[in-house]
Measured scan of single mutants.
Amino acid sequence: HNLTITQGKLFFHYNPKLCLSEIHKMEEVSGTKGRQERNDIALKTNGDQASCENELLKFSYIRTSFDKILLRWEPYWPPDFRDLLGFMLFYKEAPYQNVTEFDGQDACGSNSWTVVDIDPPLRSNDPKSQNHPGWLMRGLKPWTQYAIFVKTLVTFSDERRTYGAKSDIIYVQTDATNPSVPLDPISVSNSSSQIILKWKPPSDPNGNITHYLVFWERQAEDSELFELDYCLKGLKLPSRTWSPPFESEDSQKHNQSEYEDSAGECCSCPKTDSQILKELEESSFRKTFEDYLHNVVFVPRKTSSGTGAEDPRPSRKRRSLGDVGNVTVAVPTVAAFPNTSSTSVPTSPEEHRPFEKVVNKESLVISGLRHFTGYRIELQACNQDTPEERCSVAAYVSARTMPEAKADDIVGPVTHEIFENNVVHLMWQEPKEPNGLIVLYEVSYRRYGDEELHLCVSRKHFALERGCRLRGLSPGNYSVRIRATSLAGNGSWTEPTYFYVTDYLDVPSNIA
């Protein structure tokens, strides 16, 4: 807008934040220059609390790290170098490059900038070799853009010569660093050979998330399962459950009422301010606690030095998902009996873990797994792929695949051998790939016309006998059925096997 004052003059007093240069501009645009008398524009009460600059400061050096910015700028000295009290560095987070010096300023003089007072450097006698002032900004957020400017702080001049310097606002972004852990990993099994893994992005990506790394490792069953005799009275049979499938998407929606109208769909109840505040506090606490764990609990591995020492970490090797089922080394339970199943799973520490690289999504279907087997899954978020990966501390989750139908069934015939004193040795093959492992066998036998009897055969007993022995049988026709019990439950009964026990007292003698 054009402003013209045809008559009258300007009068400025007691404006401590208004620089004289701005008042002189007002004289020019209003056409009143030359009308004012000496005392109409006070030299001592206008701009006496402001830094009124008329020179431009330029930054000469900028260096960044993930949490620091090192700045240096060209030296500046007023005509009387004693008038320079120091520099004021202003900075704040700036997602967009549209910041002005006066953003967030209120009537009390406060604003949204963080201000650092910096002492002037030592003055050199040689004007050509003056030290460049600077400042190291610490405690910054990774991968965050900051708006920065600097200006001088000078003393009051009796001659009211307006001098000083100020830089333009520059924008500097800190470097990326390792992201925080992925949030809320959930693993479920939808079949006997697959596990579905879902997660949420890290709360602090500290860069642009480029991919996720998912490692999985087959877990050995508890050692007590191999040692305890679950045929003993009072000892509860062990059981394991597989990871249940995901709930429906509708039930997972946030901010939804727990109660549904019987007449149909209901609208979600909005969260109160107290609920939102509580969630923010919980989120802040979780982030602080995660940072504490990362800094205190997890110790970084030592990389190899120039002395030739090897990095103890196993090298990563990509495998196809079809090879995942046989990740671990199978060892027989008892070496003397080769027909026992290889369900003991000690994992070799030198073995390469299978892994998958996930790009542009937060889910993965891990296939080719062994049925009813526990897996430990390790999830890392990465925001750099080359020249070397920059990934987060791992988040861990466990899951067990679903049982395989008929995996616990005894394959092959049940054979028998009759000894003296009416002892019958029953023999059968253990299931080759049971659900988890076989903890015991149930032997059901009966003599024709009598009630059915049951015998429990422990895992250890089966390994020693290759089956079991029935003792003290009365003469007669017998039928026997056997079924295995694994961590997933009972298998199917075998087809009945028949044998006849004679009275050993009636056996004919070869003595003449």
Rank of each mutant, 00 (worst) to 15 (best):
V457R: 06
V424Q: 02
H211S: 05
K361A: 10
Y498N: 10
R318L: 12
C269Y: 12
L321D: 04
L321H: 09
H254W: 15
V359P: 08
N490H: 01
P496L: 13
A407K: 07
R318T: 07
A395G: 14
V507N: 15
N421L: 09
H454F: 01
G436S: 02
V324Q: 13
E290T: 08
F226M: 08
A263D: 08
N422E: 13
F226C: 08
P300G: 06
E217D: 10
D229V: 06
Y396H: 11
S239G: 03
P496Y: 15
S262W: 04
E249A: 14
W242G: 13
G472N: 09
G449P: 11
K233M: 12
E350R: 14
R286Q: 07
Y498R: 12
P403I: 10
S274E: 06
N295T: 08
G449E: 11
V296W: 08
L232M: 09
D385T: 03
F215A: 15
Y230E: 04
G412M: 13
S486I: 00
E389P: 09
A336Q: 05
A407C: 01
R390Y: 05
E430F: 07
P349R: 12
S283G: 04
N421T: 11
H454Q: 14
H294Y: 06
D408L: 02
S239K: 15
S304R: 07
Y259H: 05
S284N: 11
V423M: 06
R370T: 00
V334I: 15
A381V: 06
Y498S: 10
D506C: 04
N421V: 10
I209V: 12
V331W: 14
E247Q: 13
G207C: 01
N477K: 08
Y292L: 06
P205E: 03
S283D: 14
K317L: 11
P312V: 13
S444Q: 07
T241M: 11
V480C: 15
T502I: 04
G308H: 09
P434T: 04
L455G: 09
R319G: 14
L364P: 00
A335Y: 06
A220E: 15
P338M: 12
L237H: 03
S342K: 03
K317G: 08
T497L: 10
G412I: 03
L369T: 04
T288N: 14
P300S: 08
F226D: 05
D273V: 04
K236S: 13
I276N: 13
R240N: 11
C267P: 07
P245V: 07
N339S: 12
V457K: 05
Q380I: 13
L321A: 12
T494L: 02
R313V: 13
S509Y: 09
T307N: 09
V214N: 02
V324S: 09
D503A: 07
D222F: 14
S315G: 14
F337P: 14
P434M: 05
D273Y: 13
G306E: 11
L213S: 13
E388D: 15
T288P: 07
E465H: 12
S444M: 08
D250N: 15
E227L: 11
V331N: 09
I366V: 12
Y230S: 08
D250E: 12
F298A: 15
R481D: 00
E388A: 07
G306V: 12
R390G: 13
K236F: 03
P387K: 15
V329L: 08
S344C: 07
H416R: 05
N383E: 02
V423Q: 05
R318C: 06
G322H: 07
L440T: 04
P238H: 03
F419M: 10
G368H: 04
V423A: 14
Q252L: 13
S304E: 07
S305D: 09
L473A: 02
E249M: 05
C391A: 02
L228F: 11
F285T: 04
V214W: 00
L321N: 12
F372H: 10
N435C: 02
K302C: 10
L453S: 06
D323L: 07
F499N: 00
K432A: 12
P338L: 09
L505R: 05
L437G: 04
V457W: 03
Y292F: 08
D261H: 11
L280R: 13
P349V: 04
S474C: 10
E224S: 14
D291W: 15
D506R: 14
G234R: 11
I276F: 08
S305F: 10
K287L: 07
G472S: 08
T415L: 14
T347Q: 08
L225G: 02
N383K: 03
Y441I: 00
P338H: 07
E452G: 06
C267E: 14
